[in-house]
C-alpha cells in the first residue's frame, strides 16, 4: 500500500514508501551492488581519467602532470599505428558480425523442428563455448597448419599452398572464421528461444492463406525475431570490438591481425608505453565503442515490434 497523497504532502521527506517495509533494509540490499560498482566501476574509471593526464609509469612519485599531451599523441605520434589497428578491428567486426547471425539463425531454424536427436545437435553446436578459447585456438592452429591441416591438404591437391595464419592478407579472415565457428552456437541458443516464442498459430494461419515457406519466413519469423536479433547483434558488436584473446593465442598480433583491443592489452602487459598514455588510449576506445553501442541502441530499440 502506497502512502496516500495527503500523507505524502504532510511529511517533508519520507524515505519509506511502503508502511510494512523498512526502507533502510531495502536500501541495504542495494549496497553490495553499489559497492561493487564503486570499486570496480567508478574507481578504475576515475583512476584511468586521472592517469590519462599524467605520465604515470608505476611510480606516483615520478609522475608529472602533462595536460593533454597524451591525447594529442593519439593524432600525431601514434597516428599510423592507432589508425591501422582501428581499421583492422573494423574489418574484423564487419566480417564477423553478419555471418555470425546468419549462421546462428540457420542453425536455430534447423534445430527448431521437432525430430529425434535434436538436442544432440543443439548441444553439438553449443560445444565450443564449453571448450574454452585456449582449446579452440590450439585446435584451429592445427587445422590451419601448412602441413598437418586439412585445408593445406585440400590446397595441395591443387598444387597450391598457403601460409594461412602467416599470410598477412588472409590471417584476419581466418581468425574471423574461428570466431564464427566458436561463437554461433551461443547466438543460436538465443535465436532458438526467440523462435520458440513465436506462436504456431501465425504460421498455420499463413499456411492456410497460401503463403509458402519462404514468405512465412520473411513475413512472420523475421519480424517476430526482432528482439533476439537486437540482443544478438548487441553481443556480437561488443564482442568483436573487444576481442583480444584469439589474436593473442593464435598470432600474437603478427601478420596484420592486431585489433585495437589486443593492442591495448599488449601495451599494458609489455609496458611499452607509460601508463598515462595507455589510459588515454583506453579512454579513446571507450568513447568510440560506447558511441557505437548507443547509436545501435537508438536505432534498434525503436524498431522493435511490440507484441
Amino acid at each position: 500500500m502506497a502512502l496516500s497523497g495527503e500523507d505524502k504532502k504532510r511529511r517533508k521527506f519520507s524515505f519509506r514508501t511502503y508502511p510494512s517495509v523498512n526502507p533502510w533494509l531495502a536500501f541495504l540490499g542495494t549496497v553490495p551492488v553499489l559497492v561493487s560498482i564503486i570499486v570496480f566501476g567508478v574507481l578504475p574509471a576515475s583512476l584511468t581519467i586521472v592517469m590519462s593526464f599524467t605520465d604515470y609509469d608505476g611510480n606516483w612519485a615520478t609522475a608529472d602532470f602533462v595536460g593533454l599531451k597524451n591525447y594529442f599523441n593519439f593524432f600525431t605520434v601514434l597516428k599510423t599505428d592507432v589508425f591501422s589497428y582501428l581499421w583492422t578491428t573494423l574489418k574484423y567486426a564487419l566480417f564477423t558480425i553478419l555471418p555470425l547471425q546468419i549462421l546462428a539463425v540457420s542453425a536455430a531454424l534447423l534445430v527448431n523442428k521437432n525430430f529425434f536427436g535434436r538436442s544432440f545437435f543443439r548441444s553439438l553446436f553449443f560445444m565450443p563455448n564449453i571448450l574454452g578459447s585456449t582449446v579452440i585456438a590450439l585446435v584451429w592452429k592445427m587445422m590451419f597448419d601448412p602441413i598437418s591441416g586439412p585445408f593445406a591438404q585440400m590446397l595441395a591437391s591443387f598444387g597450391k599452398n598457403s601460409a594461412f595464419f602467416g599470410d598477412p592478407d588472409i590471417s584476419l579472415w581466418l581468425i574471423s572464421i574461428v570466431t564464427l565457428w566458436s561463437g554461433f552456437g551461443f547466438h543460436m541458443t538465443i535465436y532458438l528461444a526467440g523462435l520458440q516464442g513465436i506462436s504456431r498459430e501465425y504460421y498455420e494461419a499463413a499456411e492456410i492463406d497460401g503463403a509458402n515457406g519462404w514468405n512465412r519466413f520473411v513475413y512472420i519469423t523475421v519480424p517476430l525475431l526482432r528482439q533476439s536479433v537486437t540482443i544478438c547483434l548487441w553481443m556480437a558488436i561488443s564482442g568483436t570490438l573487444g576481442m583480444s584473446d584469439m589474436v593473442l593465442l593464435i598470432t600474437s598480433g603478427n601478420y596484420n591481425t592486431k585489433t585495437f583491443a589486443f593492442f591495448l592489452y599488449d601495451i599494458t602487459i609489455k609496458g611499452s608505453m607509460n601508463a598515462g598514455q595507455i589510459a588515454t588510449l583506453n579512454l579513446y576506445y571507450f568513447v568510440l565503442t560506447t558511441t557505437i553501442m548507443l547509436t545501435y541502441n537508438h536505432f534498434f530499440r525503436k524498431k522493435e515490434v511490440e507484441l
Binding site: 519520507s14 524515505f15 514508501t17 526502507p23
Partner: peptide, 24 residues
C-alpha cells in the same frame, strides 16, 4: 521499496558505460 529507488537504478544502469582500463 524506498524513496529514490529509481535514481539508484539509473546509477546502476549507467555503470554499464563506465570506461576502464587494465592498468587501472
Amino acid at each position: 521499496h524506498f524513496r529514490g529507488a529509481g535514481k539508484v537504478y539509473m546509477f546502476i544502469l549507467s555503470s554499464m558505460f563506465f570506461p576502464g582500463s587494465l592498468v587501472a
